[in-house]
Amino acid sequence: MTAIEVHDLHKSYRGRVAVDGVGFTAADGSVTGVLGPNGAGKTTTVECIAGLRRPDRGTVRVLGLDPRRDRRALRAVLGVQLQEAALHDMLTVAELVRVHRSMHRDGADPERLIAAVGLEESAGTRFDRLSGGQQQRLSVALALVGAPRVVILDELTTGLDPRSREDVLELVRELAAGGVTVLMVSHRMDEIERLCDRVLLLDDGRLVADANPAGLISAAGLTERVRFRTAGGFDRSALLGLSGVDEVTRVGEEVVVSGAGDLVGVVGTELVRQGVVATGLREQRPTLDDAFLELTGRRLDAGRSSAGRNSAGRNGEVAA
């Protein structure tokens, strides 16, 4: 069954196009990631799905409900965690969870929910005295307080320290395991790769790719690489003859083998057979980062100070 259905969605703000013909479906119980650089239309898209914005054109259905027309019915089954949405700042964690719980007919047990997001020790702390990470975890808890069947999470791990991030991601995994449909917006490719069955790649208001993470990488025509260093020579044609190997190039002392399959195993065995002394043999898998660059010609985190894992180096290689 389809949980989320978006067809030909358009939205402009004062003449500036934010979302331009986005369409996709998300199956019941799936985890879908919405990925793209700042200003790609990610938040506008999910806000249209949450019923917070009226689309200029196109249709949205969540569990068959129209987010604007069936607003009330939708609120009972949809949990939303918003970017930069504050709460009553002088109330404590426990008070906020209980107040939000009381606004739903059915839902989670407040104490268990607070424990689930790891805020037991802060239950009596006022919202304005929580750290950014704690506030973020509370906002996730409030999205889940009504025991929703569909959850929208917008930038849920922004501002979290590594441990909190792991906890929150684990929570999402548990949600999905429990059959809840998740639509999550993220800047972080690693999160999407780990959690999502599907990834929607948005760029400049348009959907540029819709596939599973591995499919997206192969759609971008990216190959796996194995690198090693060696001072002496080796039999290049023998390497090229191995199954899965497409290309062997030498850059200074480093050799790069491109291809698919169990590349590192095949190349390693062959080097040992040839008696070549190779150091630093390592595998390099293309990431969604690389796929985004390949598909749009731009870096996903361009302009962001917190550039991802050693991405600068990879950037150079793909461009070369």
Partner: peptide, 20 residues
């Protein structure tokens, strides 16, 4: 303050909505 800080917006996605 509730509008400025986004409290009303947050309540807008609850079954109750921001009016109560």
């Amino acid at each position: 303050h509730y509008r400025r800080a986004g409290v009303l917006r947050r309540l807008g996605v609850t079954p109750a909505g921001p009016v109560p």
